[in-house]
Simulated assay, not measured.
Amino acid sequence: MLTKKQLFTRGMLDISPHMLSVIPFGIICGAIGVELGFHPYLVYAMSFIIFGGASQIVFLQLLSGGASSLVAVASVGIINSRHLLYGAVLSEYLEKLSFIKKLLISYVVVDQGFAESNKFFKKNRNEEFLYYHLIGTGCTMWVCWQIATLSGIVLGSFVPEELGLKFAIPLTFIAIVVQDLKKLDHVIVMITCGLSSLLFFDAPFKSYIIISPVIALFVAAILLRLKK
């Protein structure tokens, strides 16, 4: 049986390779926030509260583009709704913990940490304190993300405005979805989302940001049924 410290350390080591992509992404998030005209304290506070790269960029972009606070918050909620699935998968390993402990651990659960911990959990079901591996991955991600975001904020303050960093927003999301271009059903869903956003672009309160992914999810559900 591994001790709590050993499991925590293992989690830190398992998540470490992901830092090669997470740290540059964090720097971009911090720099973009400053570039879009937000106060550095606000950008860093957002990184502390939301703690999610894609969500933070979407939140900043929507607010800077004139979207209402309601639409911005709802969009972040939709993007982060995948964590409901993470929680459902991890629940069997955390069922003995108190509600407060589960709540605290949920704050540091991120995509990469979930993937590594879930893989470790399946191979080591008999370990008593498995959740320390999840805490190890989450805390490592959190510390590196905060440092990277802070570095980006400092960097964004020195980058000349004429050079601009706004181009990094579409490039970042292209990098996220480019791997899904290999699958036809994923391409259909992305095209549907893009066409829907154009069709409903003039919807009140910039709500096309919410309408288009909902339509795309509906199409994805139909495609899944057809595949089965």
Rank of each mutant, 00 (worst) to 15 (best):
M1C: 13
M1V: 11
M1W: 07
T3H: 09
T3Q: 13
K4T: 01
Q6E: 15
Q6D: 10
R10N: 13
G11I: 00
D14S: 04
I15E: 02
S16E: 03
H18W: 14
L20T: 04
S21A: 15
V22D: 01
G26W: 04
I27M: 14
I28Y: 02
I28K: 10
G30Y: 03
A31Q: 03
V34W: 00
P40M: 10
Y41M: 13
L42I: 15
Y44D: 06
A45N: 14
S47M: 09
F48N: 08
I49K: 02
G53R: 01
S55H: 04
Q56S: 06
L60S: 05
Q61T: 05
Q61M: 04
Q61C: 04
L62C: 12
L62I: 08
L63P: 08
L63I: 12
G65M: 12
S69A: 14
L70W: 14
L70N: 09
V71Y: 00
A74F: 13
G77S: 07
N80Y: 07
R82Y: 02
V89C: 06
V89Y: 10
E92I: 11
F99M: 10
L104I: 15
L104M: 10
I105Y: 14
S106K: 01
S106Q: 10
Y107N: 03
V108E: 10
V108M: 07
V109M: 14
V110M: 14
D111I: 06
Q112N: 09
G113L: 06
F114C: 00
E116R: 12
K119S: 15
E127K: 09
E128D: 07
L130Y: 05
Y131C: 02
L134R: 04
G136L: 08
G136W: 01
T137M: 01
G138I: 00
M141R: 00
M141F: 06
M141Q: 07
C144K: 01
I147H: 11
T149L: 02
V154K: 10
S157K: 10
F158W: 13
V159K: 00
E162D: 14
L165N: 03
L165A: 04
F167E: 08
T172R: 10
A175Q: 02
I176T: 08
L184T: 15
I188E: 09
G194M: 11
G194P: 03
S196P: 02
S197G: 14
L198W: 06
A203N: 08
F205S: 09
Y208C: 06
Y208K: 09
I210W: 05
V214I: 14
I215G: 04
I215H: 07
A220H: 08
A221D: 12
A221H: 13
A221R: 12
L223S: 10
R225H: 11
R225V: 07
